[in-house]
Design a protein around this nucleic acid. Structure first.
Lengths: 252, 252
DNA sequence: CGCAAGTTTGACGCTGCTCAATCACTGTGG
DNA sequence: CCACAGTGATTGAGCAGCGTCAAACTTGCG
């Protein structure tokens, strides 16, 4: 099996054979988990770290007033909170939006891994920096764009990330197992309003959405409308990136 | 001079004398910088990392349509982006809201430091996790709370953080060098509207704000209104925290 | 004293929310 | 195979929160 975790971390730093082998050892014994299950619950100190091999997850919090806010999505190949053991308790929950395949890694094993392999630790740190940068874009999106642009921006981000893991068809189509309620809770609006916005996106010839599948009809225009710039996702491997990777790989 | 950086990192992990000495060596030769200056600009790959000893900084981005979004504030004792050398370019700018005192550390020196002291690296990683968790709260705030609650929540956060660095008077008063325009760009609203919200907060007997100083008249009620729970800032040192710190300090 | 920056106010309109009903789809049991 | 329930999508009417525009006022500062 192709280890997507290795692929992901190699975008950030150089890894040698020993390190790759250690990561491979981590990824064994995949489980199937049903949609709707929470992998990690807010307020707890989880004993395991999860790597998502297939399916969609999401990070969220429930508010006092009954509302919910979604902070991010986990796509196939993503890993949930490797750093779980660094803070005393989770500040949000992680749930599954679809049936999923996950690998469970005991937190202690994860801790041993980063103690032994400094470069893996550093790569994981960089991964959290990317999450941080993505969260900043979400703040911009919710804070400074109207509902139409905001929705377009989210679709651009998901399209880009799904593409990076090879899950977008040649017709720019991909699975989107989100209800309109979940889209609303992601974008800071109501499900009634997101429904109307989706209609406008369809009428504008920008997307087709139905049966839990999204087609991006006009990626260029969607990005223009929403001011989307994929840089923050760090999915590329520019020459600058490559030199950066080796610079960070200094031996101790 | 009391090294606030050491204090901050010790909340996350145990540090020995050698590590403390290394951090002390970093913090020398403070500069004065004028309000309005940008320490770091979006799109660049900065050569230096900054530690803020006095004054206020802020992280922000400018949008295509002329708007601005603020992502966070840097208070005395905070450090801007130690990890600057881990990504190829900044995804946001860092500016100064008031005259400030800063220490400039060359990025290479920072890199050497973390190469040499794994525990310092880990502490800095944890610091980025706290930033991440704070950003999540900002997403909740902007996405799921109305203008009144949202403003109250921001004031609770700032009050708590200022308290942690000893800058709140016994009368719950502290410097707040923000214009209403900056508050608006933080909270995803217009300056006209924030002005009206501030009036309501004053009328409700919750705050006094003027002359760049904020007084929190009723901290309890302000927190209730806004659903503020300080946990995400990780400013405490609970017993659980202490055992966590030592657990993370395994030698390699 | 006079300018510049920031704050305050008013009138008006639109975006997005609320409430509530209807429609469509899917899986289930009889 | 069909009735039915549950979940999600869609629609409509009415309204409120917040934005826009524009002007007046206040404060700090050279």
């Amino acid at each position: 099996m192709n280890n997507t975790l290795v692929t992901k971390l190699r975008r950030f730093i150089e890894l040698d054979e020993g390190e790759v082998a250690a990561l491979d050892r981590l990824v064994r014994d995949p489980h199937s988990v049903k949609a709707g299950v929470d992998l990690i619950e807010e307020g707890t100190n989880p004993e395991n770290v999860f790597l998502l091999l297939g399916g969609w997850g999401y990070r969220y919090s429930l508010l006092h007033n009954g509302g919910r806010q979604i902070f991010g999505y986990l796509l196939p190949g993503d890993l949930c909170d490797v750093h779980v053991f660094m803070l005393d308790k989770m500040d949000h929950s992680i749930g599954l939006l679809s049936d999923a395949t996950v690998v469970k890694v005991p937190a202690d094993e994860m801790l041993e891994l980063i103690n032994r392999y400094p470069r893996i630790e550093r790569a994981l740190w960089i991964a959290t920096l990317v999450t941080e940068s993505t969260l900043r874009q979400w703040v911009v999106n919710i804070g400074r764009r109207d509902a139409f642009e905001r929705t377009a921006h989210l679709f651009c981000e998901l399209w880009q990330r799904m593409q990076a893991v090879g899950l977008v068809s040649v017709t720019d189509q991909f699975d989107l197992p989100l209800t309109q309620i979940e889209l609303a809770d992601t974008l800071g609006m109501t499900s009634v309003h997101i429904n109307r916005i989706l209609q406008r996106l369809r009428e504008a010839g920008l997307i087709v959405l139905g049966k839990r599948r999204l087609t991006i009809l006009d990626p260029r225009r969607l990005a223009d409308i929403s001011g989307f710039d994929p840089d923050y996702l760090r999915l590329d491997a520019t020459p600058q990136h490559v030199s950066l990777r080796s610079r960070l790989s200094l031996v101790r």
